[in-house]
Design a protein around this nucleic acid. Structure first.
Length: 563
RNA sequence: GCCCCGAUGGUGAAAUGGAUAUCACGGCUGACUUCGGAUCAGCUGUUCCGGGUUCGAAUCCUGGUCGGGGCACCA
């Protein structure tokens, strides 16, 4: 529909002698202004040297002819020179009928058809627990992946976790200290990591002037770190391998709970070799520099931070591993676009890596884009973070499920509602800004929330089930004026396409919330089964169910059958 | 010190340079108890401050103020 109007406006612009000017076709701020609006007259008025209103009047006349009475019931000029288009009853009916008929296909578009896109997100580190920060990335990553798929692209999901480096050495040190050779739970690993980390902090500096004999935990851990890179100590490597698998099992459990999965699970250890090689090559070409024995990328000239890529001990930092990862991805799954989703605290670091990658492999860098997510902060309440105590993703989800259980005795539905509540709170706002998860309000499952959308859907489904029992189907035809929510439904494909294009799931969330609200308003005022225009209203209910189901599914929010 | 990001009702957020700045929570008032009340209707505003660009600025530029994050051998 939008496409049709865009074409018509474009032709109208040709008629007034201003072809090829960019303009917008959008949903007006208020539905009272119509179903579509264009600022084309404002955009070209200056070029033509005319007043916006004059141009708008001309455009409006052309549009009325081009679209015809069947599509646009009226075209008006308003405000500073907007051309507003109100769709005809038949046109709205046609669009809603399409929403009904297309089922699962309703809302798909072809903007990225034939493209291959690889999306990286979640990125938890082995030997550590997944915390609520990873939760945000995981939820956003899955939604973005689905949106891009909805635009016709073939998507691969990958996650990149640290399984090597000082943090791992700390965990292994802790395990050995506790005498654990066969770790079985993620909790054991977490405790071991905390032990190791504390021991590292409190132990004396590596080379204190008065150190005699006992090197302390710090030296032991540093030695372990080197040993893992070397990989010669068979017993150590066995413990490392086992620990990593325990971590991954736990991650997979949480990913499944959140409705996501990965086609590729990459590890630091997979990328060190390539990372080292590429950076060394780059050093020879003058892309990287030596400084105090380390290999650095000097970001000054590009206005990014200078960072170390290879330490003076010749071990790669995260930055070098990221370079290696870029090559690894390309080798394993060649793509047209690479999307990397991380917390916004990594934005600066990512800029340096991308700048370096641009010098090393320009084509690879050119198709890479970074999406930053915000922090998830918990508002006051029993789940607020205590001093130095990070909340794990698993505990958080468990707590929300337990609260959802108060209203839902069925554990499966409690889980669907809880996951919906969490995802909604994360996705409702633009990625990048911090998220306040208020334990009190959000979990009350009320108002502006995932469960509100789920509930609207459940009630609509219930109406349809009811209609099968006692439908009279005596009333035919449709009311003269379309209901407001009908006019919202027809914008669904455009919203989904834009959300994918801008990597902004929040646009879809806002849209669905508005749709649910209008549906509830309709539901409260109008009788469907046994009311006027019953057959038409049932068709509307099916169109609503399809739109809400497909919309929630695109966000990765579960759609319960009952609540 | 340098760099990046942000600032919108009491609270949390929306808004491609466009129209009377949208939505929810909380609070207050009311409806209805049905095709599922996890519902609906109504009320509740100096877009941080100053200057600029523009027919038009929450949005762009500029100077402040406040907050968050990042700044080489950690990830």
């Amino acid at each position: 529909m939008e496409e049709q109007i865009r074409t018509a406006v474009s032709e109208a612009l040709n008629q007034v002698g201003a072809s090829g000017v960019s303009f917008a076709v959008e949903r007006p701020a208020s539905h009272l202004h119509g179903d579509y609006a264009t600022n084309a007259a404002l955009a070209v008025a200056k070029i033509l040297g005319k007043k916006p209103h004059e141009v708008a009047d001309e455009l409006a006349r052309f549009l009325i002819d081009a679209l015809g009475k069947d599509i646009a019931s009226h075209v008006t000029v308003a405000g500073p020179g907007f051309v507003n288009i109100t769709l005809a009853r038949e046109s709205v009916t046609l669009a809603v009928a399409e929403a009904d008929a297309k089922g699962e296909e309703w809302g798909k578009n072809t903007a990225e058809s034939g493209k291959r896109v690889i999306v990286e997100y979640s990125n938890p580190n082995a030997f550590k627990e997944m915390h609520i920060g990873h939760l945000v990335g995981t939820v956003v990553g899955e939604a973005v992946s689905r949106l891009v798929e909805n635009s016709g692209a073939k998507v691969a999901r990958d996650t990149f976790g640290g399984d090597i480096g000082p943090n791992v050495a700390k965990a292994l040190w802790g395990l050995r200290k506790a005498g654990i050779s066969d770790p079985a739970t993620a909790n054991e690993l977490g405790t071991a990591y905390t032990e190791g980390s504390n021991a590292y902090e409190t132990s004396p500096e590596a080379k204190p002037p008065f150190a005699k004999g006992s090197g302390g935990a710090r030296e032991e851990i540093d030695a372990l770190n080197q040993a893992i890179y070397a990989g010669d100590d068979r017993e150590l490597m066995e413990l490392w391998r086992k620990g990593r698998e325990v971590s991954m099992e736990e991650f997979r459990r949480i990913w499944k709970l959140l409705g996501t999965h990965f086609d590729f699970e990459f590890f630091d250890s997979d990328t060190t070799e390539t990372g080292l090689r590429v950076v060394h090559d780059g050093l020879a070409k003058g892309i990287f520099e030596k400084s105090d024995g380390a290999v650095i990328y000097n970001g000054e000239k590009k206005g990014v931070h200078t960072m170390v890529f290879i330490t003076s001990h010749d071990t790669p930092t995260y930055e070098a591993k990221d370079i290696g990862l870029a090559f690894l991805k390309e080798e394993r799954w060649p793509s047209d676009k690479i999307i990397v989703i991380t917390g916004n605290e990594q934005t600066g670091r990512f800029k340096t890596v991308l700048a370096a990658l641009t010098d090393v492999a320009p084509l690879l860098a050119a198709k890479t884009m970074h999406l930053a997510t915000g922090f998830l902060k918990l508002a006051s309440g029993k789940m607020s973070s205590r001093e130095g105590n990070v909340i794990t993703a698993a505990d958080f989800i468990k707590e929300v499920i337990s609260q959802a259980s108060e209203k839902n005795t069925d554990p499966l539905i409690a889980e669907q509602v809880a996951i919906g509540a969490i995802k909604y709170m994360i996705l409702r706002q633009a990625p990048g800004s911090d998220i306040i998860f208020d334990a009190e309000k959000s979990l009350s499952l009320d108002g502006d929330s995932g469960p509100y959308l789920q509930y609207a859907l459940v009630r609509a489904k219930s109406v349809l089930a009811q209609s099968k029992v006692e439908s009279q189907k005596s009333q035919v035809g449709s009311p003269e004026e379309p209901y407001l929510f009908e006019r919202i439904i027809l914008h669904f494909p455009e919203v989904a396409a834009r959300a994918a294009r801008e990597l902004a799931p929040n646009l879809l969330v806002t849209y669905l919330t508005e749709l649910a609200s209008e549906w509830n308003s309709f539901y409260a005022k109008e009788r469907i089964v046994g009311g006027d225009h019953e057959a038409y209203k049932l068709m509307l209910a099916r169109a609503f169910v399809n739109t809400m189901t497909n919309g929630l599914t695109l966000l990765g929010i579960p759609t319960p059958e009952r609540m």
